[in-house]
Nucleic acid binder design. Sequence first.
DNA 1: GCAATTCTTGAAAGCGCTTGCAGACCGTAA
DNA 2: TTACGGTCTGCAAGCGCTTTCAAGAATTGC
Lengths: 348, 348
Amino acid sequence: MRRSDLERSVDSASTGAAVTLEMVAAEAGVSPSTVSRILNGTAKVRESKVRAVEAAISKLRFTPNPVARSLARGRSMSVGIVTQSFGSPFYGEALTAIEQRLMRANYAALFVSGHYREADERRCVDHLLARRVEGIILLNSCLPSLEIVNLARGAPLILTGRSVTAERIHCIDVDSTAGASLATQYLIDQGHRRIAYLAGPADHADAVQRLNGYKTALATARIPFTKKLVAEGDYTAHGGLRGMNELLDAQAEFTAVFAANDETAYGAMLALHRRGIRVPQQVSVIGYDDLPASTFMIPPLTSVHRATAELGEHAAEAIIAMIEDRPVVRRETTPTLAVRDSTRSLHR
Amino acid sequence: MRRSDLERSVDSASTGAAVTLEMVAAEAGVSPSTVSRILNGTAKVRESKVRAVEAAISKLRFTPNPVARSLARGRSMSVGIVTQSFGSPFYGEALTAIEQRLMRANYAALFVSGHYREADERRCVDHLLARRVEGIILLNSCLPSLEIVNLARGAPLILTGRSVTAERIHCIDVDSTAGASLATQYLIDQGHRRIAYLAGPADHADAVQRLNGYKTALATARIPFTKKLVAEGDYTAHGGLRGMNELLDAQAEFTAVFAANDETAYGAMLALHRRGIRVPQQVSVIGYDDLPASTFMIPPLTSVHRATAELGEHAAEAIIAMIEDRPVVRRETTPTLAVRDSTRSLHR
DNA sequence: GCAATTCTTGAAAGCGCTTGCAGACCGTAA
DNA sequence: TTACGGTCTGCAAGCGCTTTCAAGAATTGC
């Protein structure tokens, strides 16, 4: 015996944590198997025993030990979620939804953050795998595709924001192309023709998609694409500030800017403000992601909205389905535009 | 045998996950105990065996199963963190720091969010306890003190943003009073005397502290406190907007506003903007928390900065110390002021 | 070279739960 | 009454690891 009985009883008295199924069985006068069966509903048990066991359970305040359970069942009942940043309000909503959904299905959620760094992300994933998660949700992973495919042999995977086709991998495509098109198209509809673009980092899958969406919309409207109107940011406000300054310093002429994400737009707006250029009077600004803060920017920012909570819930549902070997229901969400005060029409 | 050997070998071949310590022992020609001892450094083992075992481990790509380990050791090696919202950039930094620190000490972090709702938080805590976490970090909990004291019998607790004195509870006081004083004092130093205050929800412990800090600074400067200059918000931008509108509608006269947190300040600035009141020319605004976005507000927001990453790291360190029964090192962090463009001096 | 120590190491029990197996029990048909 | 099928329920093994205990190996001292 590793721990003395005295110790045991003391801490069961004080913490109520050390109650075991066996104790419940003894209290109820049945065998442990019976208790287990009642707990799991794995077999029919005589009504009188069920009642006795339930009484014992609530008397002893028993909660089954998930660790022992996991070991016995050979299932950890946990899934790993690799996010890029806890702070980002964008991920925040998704994380909340994921957590809720998983908890509801009795899975534990292990969140780790990769900080958009390949090495960090790799470490995170290894950590999760070592913890024996049964599935992993990768939110906008920046790992190479080949590695992701390999990973899928260790656990089923859900990917958002990129698409990798392989066994045990399910991608939830956020279709940034469509959203970027939508935003650009909106500006065009408002009469803008010289539309600048503040891009995301070129090595980001969805940054590329967004750039493509921008180009597509221009092409559709027969507006030539010029590199002069594009500056590369890094998805941060700081990058947006710098990008906008570059554009301005290069004397680029434009009546509207489409920023690859809201944070970039914040930086851009600040740069414009500093130069005394008024938004939206002189330049319209549109963002992407529709962060909560965007509603309260000055002026409130028009932005492409995506249903992140739904995305998170869907991701959670998908990983559960894969773990439990059920077909994954595909659910598409299309981005919409939250029109606010940072854009104006050139018509009339 | 629950799973067939075939199944076993198949998935060990494909996933490499089912390698057990016993297999390593067989491969290395030693007993499981020896492998365990090498893994844990719990006893001296002959050099030649160590090498054989290490070779076997890397050949088989063995990772000890944490579930089995937890069960055998009677320790879950996990700590629960109750945050209020994943999305909040304020918590974000702290969470990241907590995660890092815990991972470094080989603890798993279980994050759950309470959404500032007592019932949700209670559910979260129960969930964590059921998962047998060895300690819990409560970030700005809104649970009643009595309940928290009870909780501490289940697991050691770290609390931030409030103070409850009891066995197995350690509070990391963020001392909002001092920060609020600091901000108010700063405005006073800049020559402001009519300073409005946009409060946080009155039932929030730290909102009360902030209000007190505001009052203290006023008192020190012998400026009478007037209720007319105070509006209650709810720590959201929306609340700030509403609060500011109330103040404005009530014809309150002020040259500066201190908002209980940055989000409140965002809302307030928007309200001012909508009425054509310029910040900081006509009204100075100061916030609290120094969110990342504040740097890019228009104008960039002056705010009370608190070292949240450090706070998180400290919290993690403290809970580890408590779990491992070591004394908790108290570390104080004092808030500082990040002065930006939303405030101006009335002197000269 | 032999006894007395000190090191190493393996066998086995145990962590708390699940589950295959088989015996006990019950009702029913013959 | 006996036999038979079906229903409950307990026993015991096992999940993968840790750890106690005691035996065997190696070392030391004389």
